[in-house]
Amino acid sequence: MQATRLSIPDVVLFTPKVFGDERGFFFESFNERIFRELTGLSVNFVQDNHSKSQKGVLRGLHYQLPPKAQGKLVRVVQGEVFDVAVDIRKSSPTFGQWVGEFLSADNKHQMWIPEGFAHGFVTMSDTAEFLYKTTDYYAPEYERCIAWDEEKIGIQWPFLEKPVLSGKDQLGLALNAAEVFG
């Protein structure tokens, strides 16, 4: 497994070593020891989530506040998404900045999004199935949403049409109005 720190170094892109032949492929999607060696972090994943989205569906920018903040290890098992992490830690030198990567069933990349980041993705293929491991349980009373098109963040989403949003995501807040991390 190879780890690449992105332009916000706390966000890490993982590229697994894939073993393939005419029968198919095999790869290790998570190994706690290797994760700890590559990131310096010891995490405890407590929940796995699986979503399916149609082309053009945008989910996010979601996060949970302390004491229920979540780190997420995300990947795609069918299709392709453009995945985004936004630093929402006011004390961080990269506060309000974002990183994005294409994650797909073909490239098998995974992205580590630590606590203190808002997360979102848009589906690029006809459908996509998205898996993510979280370091804390879903707690709706601590969940928040920043607007996907927040100008102060300036995410360069790779689509031409307006995305399909949930009702919750249509109500996303501006960064300066959102509760964020200290």
Results as ranks from 00 to 15, higher is better:
residue 126 D to S: 14
residue 124 M to L: 11
residue 117 F to Q: 10
residue 126 D to P: 13
residue 122 V to M: 04
residue 119 H to Q: 10
residue 123 T to N: 09
residue 122 V to A: 06
residue 111 M to W: 10
residue 124 M to I: 13
residue 126 D to M: 10
residue 110 Q to D: 05
residue 118 A to K: 08
residue 138 Y to I: 09
residue 111 M to D: 09
residue 113 I to A: 01
residue 110 Q to T: 09
residue 138 Y to S: 07
residue 116 G to L: 05
residue 135 T to R: 04
residue 115 E to H: 10
residue 132 Y to H: 13
residue 134 T to Y: 01
residue 115 E to W: 09
residue 128 A to Y: 02
residue 112 W to F: 15
residue 134 T to F: 02
residue 113 I to C: 12
residue 129 E to K: 11
residue 124 M to A: 15
residue 110 Q to C: 02
residue 133 K to C: 07
residue 123 T to G: 09
residue 117 F to K: 01
residue 117 F to N: 02
residue 113 I to N: 02
residue 124 M to D: 01
residue 115 E to D: 09
residue 112 W to C: 01
residue 122 V to F: 02
residue 110 Q to A: 14
residue 117 F to L: 05
residue 122 V to D: 03
residue 118 A to H: 13
residue 131 L to H: 08
residue 128 A to F: 03
residue 139 A to E: 10
residue 112 W to T: 01
residue 121 F to M: 07
residue 132 Y to E: 03
residue 133 K to T: 12
residue 122 V to W: 00
residue 117 F to M: 06
residue 130 F to A: 00
residue 128 A to E: 03
residue 131 L to V: 11
residue 115 E to M: 12
residue 120 G to L: 06
residue 113 I to P: 08
residue 110 Q to K: 08
residue 137 Y to S: 11
residue 129 E to M: 15
residue 121 F to E: 00
residue 135 T to K: 05
residue 124 M to R: 14
residue 124 M to E: 04
residue 123 T to H: 05
residue 132 Y to M: 14
residue 119 H to E: 01
residue 135 T to I: 03
residue 134 T to G: 02
residue 114 P to S: 05
residue 140 P to W: 10
residue 139 A to G: 07
residue 124 M to V: 12
residue 123 T to E: 06
residue 130 F to R: 00
residue 136 D to Q: 11
residue 133 K to P: 08
residue 115 E to Q: 15
residue 128 A to D: 08
residue 139 A to N: 15
residue 122 V to H: 02
residue 138 Y to H: 10
residue 137 Y to H: 13
residue 110 Q to N: 07
residue 132 Y to K: 06
